[in-house]
Write a protein that binds this DNA or RNA. Sequence first.
RNA 1: GGCCCCUUGGUCAAGCGGUUAAGACACCGGCCUUUCACGCCGGUAACAGGGGUUCGAGUCCCCUAGGGGUCACCA
Length: 487
Amino acid sequence: MDKIRVRFAPSPTGTLHIGGARTALFNWLFARKYLGKLVLRLEDSDIRRSSEDSALGIMDGLRWLGLDWDEGPDVEGDFGPYRQSDRIDIYRKYLDQLIDQGKAYYCFCSSEQLAAEKEAARLAKADYRYAGHCQTISKSEAEERIQNGENPVIRFKSPTDGVLVVHDLIRGEVEFNNRLLDDFIIAKSDGWPTYNFAVVVDDYGMCISHVIRAEEHLSNTPKQILLYQALGWELPQFAHVSMILAPDRSKLSKRHGATSVQEFRDEGYLPEALINYLALLGWSSGEDRDFWTISELIERFSLDGISRSPAVYDIEKLGWMNGHYLSAASADRIAIMLHKEAHRRGFISDHSEDKFIRVVALVKNRVKTINEILNEGSYFFEPVSSYDEKGCKKYFQKENSSTLLKEALKLCQESDFFSVENLEQELRQRAEELNIKAAQLIHPIRLALSGRTATPGIFEVMEVLGKNECIDRINSAILYAESLKSR
RNA sequence: GGCCCCUUGGUCAAGCGGUUAAGACACCGGCCUUUCACGCCGGUAACAGGGGUUCGAGUCCCCUAGGGGUCACCA
């Protein structure tokens, strides 16, 4: 097999969409697996809609996911330039070639005229196809009109009969009838190529061996193949990956929540979790296996495993997976990610870095996203401002509540808070002496220290909080519990 | 609407002519436990419908239905 070269070719008109990210991932895995090259190409031939910010955002998103490229706008390569806006001369050359060969022609029809024809076709319930008025305009006449300031588009002269078959690596052979095609536009009146023309020139020029892209491009493929043929070029292999759908099976859009990888990043998902989840959305190795490292994915990835049917993405499962990766991640790493916000909320001062990391270590195992960590662990850094209502009923308003809280207080006062193990031992021993269950002390302490009924292990919480803080908080709780009684 | 693709539980998804039709998420029980989460055990739940082909069909073919894509001087 010739050298494997694939590409990811986003148009920088928005963010890196989760579907685009998956396409990029599949291309990346394919390139890495077969020791090929991945090229990143910016399809910015629509100057008006493209922006540098968007391009930067997309590249940033890819990098965050760990998907690197071997050639691209920012990486020298032998097949550049890698942004369409820098390739106008190349397009021009092949456009001219097709016109010289009579395979394409200038079209001067006004958009008003075309719109009217389309409307007429619609009213007649007929399919609209460009009628080919300008096919007969001679080259010299066309040149003269251009000299005189007209700005024609260029149309490709499509065949009017025959069947064209796309050999798709995922879908098999897909047939299209040429009769349905009209003379589509390959260059706009501003001189820029349209998508269908630019991809062909670029994929050929960049020696792309496999075009792995979203299914939305399948219907365009016949046009592109016609162009390859007209230009006398060998076809790449095609593989059209099905789309990712929203839970209601409609196209994924903003109203379905996060759709871009930057949003997932901002909402506290880990890149390795997103990669793992995306890899399994629409691809399967056939094995009964949920967790995959990047190198395992590279090793097992294959186009055969890509599903033909569209996949609905399930945020719950992503969350579940992220939770697992969060547990596995080091507290240091997560703490760094939270640093800025933790500072803003006053959770970290100059000498409390260590405490913050300990809290992160305790809390990260029980949440699904990084962003939940600060709220989940807020009581480690802020005084308890209220107590869980149900908790109060159970642990602060019982007959013996005060007694138990006072026992807890005494326990803290007498302990040296030497270690988690020690604390536990001391508490259990005290419970035994009092002839009560350890839980009878533990629950009130948890509520007193955190205001909550669910926290990490109570002895860890005590240790992190420290002796003085525990004593203060239990004292406050005693006062609060008594105030409840007197009401 | 024309053309194209797709169709196994709510979701992902295994299956590639012969299986009691895996597994995961979610959901519901139970266990473990100081709570929550994790973990463990168990449960509910699927081959869109109809025709063929075949000894035998989730697996092959056709039709219908539903979903998606595409028909731009957007990509």
